[in-house]
Each structure stands twice: as structure tokens, then as C-alpha cells.
């Protein structure tokens, strides 16, 4: 059946995405002592480690380095975690998919969304760093959610592609770990983009993740609203990835039943 039918069914099953997200959130910290507090604590601890490492070993001349770090890290970690979880979404729900009709994209999407919810909690950590480093608050900072929405679309697109590919080729799951590592170094998270030669920086600026981090940092660190081309590029790349992911997933989903 066609993609239009599948989109309709996905909308009809939207509440299932809600239930799946609820499940993930409930189970994430069940049986842990600090519970949701971890979503706040974790980024702060990681930021501290990176700060120690990079202030002693490599020195970058960046104003308000803690905030610079945690902004990049929040965005990148969400992308890393959500796409990795989405990759296994179809494989791990195989027993179910063999028995009941459910629009299949529900599973990777639910995983990305539950990571997004925990990421939203981690934003408190960003706020804490902002207060501690005495950042001047500006009204423009309220736009912080816009780059994050772009990010949600981007991660959903990548997540759908990975979840579909992993069904047919298990290699993808091994390969992706290396790919995310490459991506981590290709995204200025702990270094400034000025630290790399212009010939490389040109390509890094095309990295959609960096374009999102750039918007987020400009807003959170300086309260500056970046110029329109930056917004357009990030929005365009994210939307394009989402559309591409949906189309590829729709193409692959018909074969899932033969492999799971």
C-alpha cells in the first residue's frame, strides 16, 4: 500500500507513539536511585570532564568555554543517542511486527521522541551553566527551541533510514559507531571552527549538525540572532533529511517481514 495510506495510519496511531515514549521514559530510570535527576547530572558531569581535559591539554581561546561545551554536547549527544536507539527499533520489535499491523515508522519515531524528551530535561543543565557563568540574559534566547526542532526532524530522518537498513544489513549497526565518531570530530563541539584550516572548515559548515549547533550557541552564548541564511540552511537540511528518511523508510518497510 502507498505512502499516503501509511501516513494516514501513522496519524491514526499517533497515540501509540505517545504510549511508547511514556514506556521508554518510565523504564529509563526505573530502579535507579536518582531517577530523572540523572538527565540533569549527566551532562554536567560530562561537561566537567571535557572542561578539565581540554583546558589542560589543548587550550582554545573561547569565551565562556563551559557553556560553549555544553551547548554543543547537548545537541550532539541527543543526535547520537536517538539515532543509535532508533537503529534497533525495528529489529527489537520484530516479534510484534510479525503479529499485528502497526505503521512501522512508529517505532523509530517513538525512540527519537523519547530521547528528545530527556534532552529537554538536560536543557536545565544548560540553564544552570548559564546562571553560574553569569551570562547576560536576552529576550532572543527564547528562540532556543527553534534549532532544537530542526534537530528533531534531522534525527528522525536519520533514525528512520538506520532502522530500515539495520533490518537487512546488520553491518550497519557496527559501521554506525565509527561513523558517529567521525561525525563527532567533524563537528566543532569542543574546539572552535577557527581552529581548523579554512579548506576543511568550508566542509564543516555544510555539516547540518554544526549548522544547528551554531544557531543554538549564538542564541545561548551571546543572545545574538544569527542571519537568515544560517536559519534557512539548517531548516532546509533538516527537512530534506526528514523527507529523505521517510521516503527511504517507506521503500524499505515492505521487505521487513521477510527479514525479521
Amino acid at each position: 500500500m502507498g505512502i499516503i495510506h501509511e501516513v494516514k495510519m501513522t496519524v491514526r496511531y499517533a497515540h501509540l507513539i505517545g504510549e511508547l515514549v511514556k514506556r521508554d521514559l518510565k523504564l529509563k530510570y526505573r530502579r535507579s536511585f536518582l531517577g530523572y535527576f540523572w538527565s540533569l547530572l549527566n551532562p554536567l558531569m560530562m561537561m566537567s570532564v571535557m572542561m578539565v581535559v581540554f583546558s589542560y591539554m589543548f587550550r582554545f581561546n573561547i569565551e565562556n568555554y563551559p557553556l560553549y561545551l555544553i551547548c554543543g554536547q547537548t545537541v550532539f549527544n541527543f543526535f547520537n543517542e536517538s539515532t543509535n536507539k532508533a537503529m534497533y527499533a525495528i529489529l527489537e520489535n520484530a516479534p510484534l511486527l510479525k503479529k499485528v499491523y502497526v505503521p512501522k515508522c512508529v517505532f523509530p519515531l517513538a525512540r527519537v521522541l523519547s530521547c528528545f524528551t530527556t534532552m529537554a530535561l538536560s536543557l536545565l543543565a544548560v540553564l544552570i551553566v548559564m546562571i553560574f557563568t553569569r551570562v547576560q540574559f536576552h529576550l532572543s534566547m527564547l528562540l532556543f527551541f527553534v534549532p532544537l526542532v530542526f534537530l528533531l526532524f534531522f534525527a528522525s530522518g536519520v533514525g528512520m533510514i538506520l532502522s530500515g537498513l539495520a533490518v537487512k544489513f546488520q553491518d550497519v549497526t557496527h559501521l554506525y559507531g565509527v561513523l558517529t565518531m567521525v561525525l563527532m570530530y567533524a563537528t566543532p563541539i569542543f574546539y572552535p571552527i577557527e581552529a581548523v584550516p579554512e579548506s576543511v572548515a568550508r566542509f564543516i559548515r555544510l555539516n547540518p549538525l554544526y549548522s544547528i549547533i551554531y544557531l543554538f550557541r549564538e542564541l545561548m552564548l551571546y543572545g545574538r540572532i544569527p542571519p537568515a541564511p544560517n536559519w534557512l540552511y539548517a531548516a532546509g537540511a533538516s527537512l530534506a533529511m526528514f523527507v529523505l528518511g521517510s521516503l527511504l523508510f517507506d521503500h524499505m518497510r515492505k521487505d521487513f517481514i521477510y527479514y525479521i
Binding site: 496511531y13 501509540l16 504510549e19 511508547l20 514506556r23 523504564l27 526505573r30 516479534p95 510484534l96 503479529k99
Partner: peptide, 20 residues
Amino acid sequence: AGFDPDLTGRENVYLNGALL
């Protein structure tokens, strides 16, 4: 088949219902 072993019976009723 649709039950999550880590969820309680109550939570599974709602999850299973949503799957259906």
C-alpha cells in the same frame, strides 16, 4: 507478544491497547 516485561500489568494494558 506485545507485553513489555519491565512494565507492570497496568501499564501493559494501556500499551497493548495502543498497539491494537
